[in-house]
């Protein structure tokens, strides 16, 4: 590690103020969520979670993430590979397009699907004729989630792959490896940590996404409400304990992501250090 710049007296002051800000803006609200959820005891906390609608929301959230995250992992890998390894016209445009979901409001990301596939949408009549339902159905939720979480994996991988270059792949080729072997034995292991981080972040966002999903969901209880939407429904019904109980699940998901990330970093510290020292 590079030695940090030393300013006498400044370090403790900065540390204290950072901790104060983090405590006030992150830890305190999070603590309130748990406090509210358990405010009427453990039984009152567990009851709304056992509700069939809540269980359906949990299942739906997991299903949407289980579809969207792997697809975005594959897309992210492919996009990063294309951008990092090839020079072509429109490369910058592609990079900008990948970033687009970051810069537009999630509500818009939801709305575009309604405009395309909604009853009044561009393909609405056609879909109706075929009896295919996208908006107010799981498909719409998945599409909206994919769009919103599109950049996460690609964004983690692109700078890394650009930095690493393709020499190792070229070396593997000269040593007799075929395309598949180069990918599974060289390219993938080289980026596995960045890929994992990207997937973790992507997953956290996919499960927590509200805006885009809200637009395409239609809020049909037990059918198209994901966990964040379920929380909103309960909250609007003045069921505060229920809302906060469900919220603890989402908050825990964030904490688990953090713990998994830290645990992986700790478990593979040597290997990670070996990568960085290059």
């Amino acid at each position: 590690m590079r030695p940090l710049v030393r300013l006498p007296g400044a370090a403790p002051l900065l540390l204290l103020s950072s901790l104060a800000v983090l405590g006030l803006l992150v830890v305190l609200p999070l603590a309130v969520v748990f406090q509210q959820a358990f405010s009427k005891g453990v039984a009152a906390y567990l009851a709304p979670l056992a509700d069939p609608d809540a269980l359906a929301a949990i299942r739906l959230t997991l299903l949407v993430a289980a579809i969207a995250v792997p697809l975005n992992a594959v897309f992210g890998l492919a996009a990063a590979w294309t951008i990092a390894r090839f020079e072509f016209k429109g490369r910058t445009l592609l990079l900008t397009l990948i970033d687009l979901p970051f810069s537009i409001s999630p509500v818009v990301s939801g709305l575009v699907w309604v405009l395309l596939f909604g009853a009044q949408g561009l393909f609405g009549a056609l879909l109706q004729a075929w009896g295919v339902k996208i908006i107010f159905a799981t498909t719409g939720l998945v599409l909206a989630t994919i769009l919103v979480t599109l950049p996460f994996v690609a964004r983690e991988l692109i700078p890394l792959m650009q930095d690493q270059g393709a020499d190792e792949e070229a070396a593997a080729l000269t040593l007799g490896a075929g395309g598949a072997a180069v990918f599974t034995r060289v390219t993938l292991p080289k980026v596995k940590w960045a890929l994992l981080y990207g997937v973790l972040l992507c997953n956290a966002r996919a499960m927590g996404e509200f805006g885009a999903v809200s637009v395409v969901s239609g809020h049909i209880r037990g059918l198209t409400t994901t966990l964040p939407l379920h929380i909103e429904v309960l909250y609007n019904d003045y069921d505060f304990v229920g809302a906060f109980a469900a919220a603890t699940l989402l908050a825990s998901l964030g904490l688990i992501t953090l713990v998994v990330k830290t645990a992986l970093e700790w478990r593979f510290a040597d290997e990670l250090a070996a990568f960085r020292r290059r």
Binding site: E168, A170, A171, T174, G176, P189, K190, A274
Partner: peptide, 19 residues
């Protein structure tokens, strides 16, 4: 193709598999 040429190549920056 590259993989069937049976050439051993040493790259300028070695290109060792870092993992």
């Amino acid at each position: 193709p590259v993989r069937r040429r049976g050439v051993g190549m040493v790259f300028q920056h070695y290109a060792l598999f870092r993992h």
